[in-house]
């Protein structure tokens, strides 16, 4: 929706713009992509964007697992949601980099860690190609129309704050990314009907029980803390954890942060309030 809003702001300033998401199943908190193309002329190209001028990263945990600079033009810029300064960020190469702590801004102004509108303000400042006024108008039209005027204004304020707070500089380079190996069997190697049991391959375990390789801990904004003095070992959190990442050790709840998504159900349902949620600082 943010990609569409940026396109709308560009259109308001007499540009042509196209915007679309990466096709696939979308789920809240999971890594997704969206693209926006802006031009003074009619845009006839309909593909995904492989060599962008700007890359916006809403979740800094992605920097650890994905080379976000892949395809970015030499004089391009990456805009990152992080509390760090640009020169504190290390990526695969040295490029123009702008940072803003959009998560804090969103929590303060919206009460939720949803950062897309804040990042719109940051992007407007970074590109200088769309004015902040147009971004605010576009947010009011897109978000205000759907969620009500008040919500629209809040989002516009968040964007304005990110616009003001943005720090511009260069990031450091030299970070190595080793792409994760994938299991790519030939047609002959493929099991009948595609059905597989637990199978060890060059990409690690595939088949039943293999999804544990997918560490979902980096989706988290809030982190649960268990007070073991209060915990009575009733297993309610163990029963209710959607991830199943709580284990019981000596009758006390222990959380596996590789998988915890920070939903807060355990803290809400704990009968003795032994679990509290805190903002996670990475």
């Amino acid at each position: 929706m943010a990609a569409q809003t940026y396109a709308l702001a560009a259109v308001m300033e007499d540009n042509y713009a196209v915007s679309f998401p990466f096709f696939g199943a979308e789920r809240r908190g999971a890594p997704v992509m969206a693209f926006t193309r802006v031009d003074k002329d009619v845009i006839r190209i309909k593909t995904q964007i492989y060599e962008p001028d700007y890359v916006v990263v809403l979740d800094e945990t992605l920097l650890e697992t994905v080379d976000v600079l892949k395809g970015l033009k030499e004089d391009g810029m990456v805009v990152i949601n992080t509390a760090r300064r640009p020169d504190e960020v290390q990526l695969s190469r040295e490029v123009n980099c702008a940072t803003v702590d959009a998560t804090s801004i969103s929590l303060e102004l919206l009460g939720r860690p949803i950062t897309n509108t804040s990042m719109l303000g940051a992007l407007a400042r970074a590109t200088g190609e769309v004015s902040m006024e147009s971004i605010e108008r576009a947010i009011m039209e897109k978000f205000g129309g759907k969620l009500g005027t008040e919500a629209g204004e809040k989002n516009a304020r968040a964007a304005r704050k990110a616009y003001q707070d943005l720090q511009v500089g260069m990031c450091r380079g030299g970070k190595d990314f080793v792409p994760r190996k994938e299991w790519l069997p030939t047609v002959q190697e493929m099991p009948l009907g595609g059905s597989i049991g637990a199978l060890e391959t060059e990409a690690g375990l595939v088949g039943i029980g293999s999804f544990v390789r997918n560490k979902t801990g980096d989706w988290r904004t809030f982190i649960p803390h268990v007070d073991h003095d209060k915990c009575i070992g009733c297993r309610m959190c163990w029963f209710y954890c959607p991830e199943g990442c709580i284990t019981m050790e000596d009758q006390k709840a222990v959380i596996d942060f590789d998988y915890c998504k920070g939903c807060g159900i355990c803290a809400q349902e704990c009968p003795v309030d032994a679990i509290s949620m805190e903002r996670e600082r990475r």
């Binding site: 789920r27 809240r28 999971a30 959607p242 199943g244």
Partner: peptide, 20 residues
């Protein structure tokens, strides 16, 4: 039992009741 037959690592939204 402690063993999960539906393991962690799934990609449901945070707070989804279906995996529970």
């Amino acid at each position: 039992p402690d063993e999960h037959l539906f393991t962690p690592g799934h990609t449901a939204c945070p707070g989804c009741a279906a995996p529970i």
